[in-house]
Amino acid sequence: MQRVNMIMAESPGLITICLLGYLLSAECTVFLDHENANKILNRPKRYNSGKLEEFVQGNLERECMEEKCSFEEAREVFENTERTTEFWKQYVDGDQCESNPCLNGGSCKDDINSYECWCPFGFEGKNCELDVTCNIKNGRCEQFCKNSADNKVVCSCTEGYRLAENQKSCEPAVPFPCGRVSVSQTSKLTRAETVFPDVDYVNSTEAETILDNITQSTQSFNDFTRVVGGEDAKPGQFPWQVVLNGKVDAFCGGSIVNEKWIVTAAHCVETGVKITVVAGEHNIEETEHTEQKRNVIRIIPHHNYNAAINKYNHDIALLELDEPLVLNSYVTPICIADKEYTNIFLKFGSGYVSGWGRVFHKGRSALVLQYLRVPLVDRATCLRSTKFTIYNNMFCAGFHEGGRDSCQGDSGGPHVTEVEGTSFLTGIISWGEECAMKGKYGIYTKVSRYVNWIKEKTKLT
């Protein structure tokens, strides 16, 4: 034993070699072989497995989906700052455009905790909710729209109204504003409101030439003092309507412009014939205590009207009353817009006519005020429907199939267009061939041609 100890002390290297040989010859039971080890760690190889990531292109799944990435790591994937920024906006807080917040056709661009709407022409605001041009839906104005110097929408209202708090709607500024039905039992019968379409306001006024200088022999019209197929109006439903009495009662109609003036057809009036105007009328054979009678003290036909040349060209006249009318729910003026808007309103496509005229061709006159909704007829169809001249200051309205029309005794009465609950004068009943005849239409004086003249002559002093 002493000898062994001496050998170990003198030859430590020998001992180490012996131990190493023993270990190498022993069977290893701690580690699995290569094949079995792979069965336990069965993990798919990654895209760049075996390579240094710093030297390969980034992978979106590896960089940002398996674990949260930084902007720089995302930049490695896209290799483009702009594309990385677009991805980053949604990656950080989701897609803010998912709810489609942009209105009126706006395009949404996502941002971090926010979004941006790219608005089409005519709109602005956070969600493109603000109209900035009158060309689109009248700028959301209830009545009139004008573009300011910086191309912003400025709404306005006709006389007797003021802008509401929203700067879009119009509200009454006087007790009985024009064009409004205020009798409670008839307010439910107000005709369907007309909503502004998209309009090209630059070209809204037709490029028409008034044929002022045409000389033409007097034409022989049949029954051209021209509501057939209409309905009984309720008291106060058309408070701007008046009836004219002269040699015979209810020979023509008219509309209240203001307390002192009536507008009617020029062919209705004769110099030297006494005319009485009755406002607030409903049943011409009954006294309903809503009527107001006034005498006409002055007749002003349009300066281009000449019955000797043509009885229905420039067929418009103004009547001055001896005493002002007292405005109330049964006696209310009709609204008159400017030339541009009167023309736009007419193009809405349908209007209402009213009167006490004959209820059928050569038949009896109506006792109760009649009204009828009539569609506008395109000019080409209008011209083809008659052998008589249709001037540019006239328009056609009615039904091709016949059966409904204005008729004798309705002449001078109103053709009105309702705009968001307020009625505007767009025409004056003038003439036609018979009444409600198939293929024939009622012919009306186009008020847009005469609004400046009306307003100039009827100013209240």
Results as ranks from 00 to 15, higher is better:
D223C: 05
P301I: 09
I336T: 03
I428Q: 03
H314M: 02
N393D: 09
I297G: 04
N135C: 03
Y161G: 01
N138Q: 03
N310D: 09
R298F: 03
E420V: 11
I299M: 11
L327M: 12
T386A: 12
I15A: 06
T85D: 10
K247I: 10
E27T: 09
S329K: 14
A37V: 15
V263A: 04
V227S: 12
Y115F: 07
D410S: 09
R449S: 12
I299W: 06
D150M: 09
C396F: 02
N343H: 07
N166I: 01
E281F: 10
I284M: 07
T186E: 12
K146V: 06
K137H: 14
I15N: 03
T190Y: 07
I299N: 04
S182N: 09
R404F: 13
T458Q: 03
K438A: 07
D410H: 14
D200E: 09
S406P: 15
A397E: 01
K152G: 10
C102A: 00
V154E: 07
L189F: 12
D405K: 14
S385E: 06
W261R: 00
D338G: 08
R46C: 04
V451L: 04
D223V: 08
G105P: 00
S107M: 07
K339T: 09
C178A: 00
I334H: 01
G179N: 02
L327E: 03
T215Y: 09
T458F: 00
N166L: 02
N48P: 15
P301K: 13
G442Y: 05
E116N: 10
E73A: 15
Y441F: 10
C145V: 00
R379Q: 11
E171I: 11
L346N: 03
E27F: 03
T29K: 09
Q185N: 09
Q185P: 08
V326C: 08
P197V: 11
N138R: 05
Q167D: 09
K247T: 10
T287P: 08
K168T: 05
L41K: 14
K440L: 03
E66I: 04
R62E: 03
E285Y: 07
T215W: 06
E171T: 08
P414C: 09
L318N: 00
M394Q: 11
F224E: 06
L369T: 13
C69W: 02
C382V: 02
A307D: 06
I275S: 03
Y22H: 06
K457G: 06
S423N: 15
E288M: 06
R162N: 09
H302N: 04
K188H: 07
S99G: 06
N245G: 06
D338W: 03
E401Q: 12
S350C: 07
S25E: 05
N5V: 12
V331W: 00
C69L: 03
K247F: 08
Q90M: 10
G13M: 10
K152Q: 08
G160K: 00
A192P: 05
P235Y: 07
V92A: 15
S49F: 07
L367G: 14
L383D: 06
E193Q: 05
G160S: 07
I309W: 07
D378N: 15
R404C: 12
Y201S: 06
R46A: 15
G402I: 13
I256V: 07
I336S: 01
N113D: 10
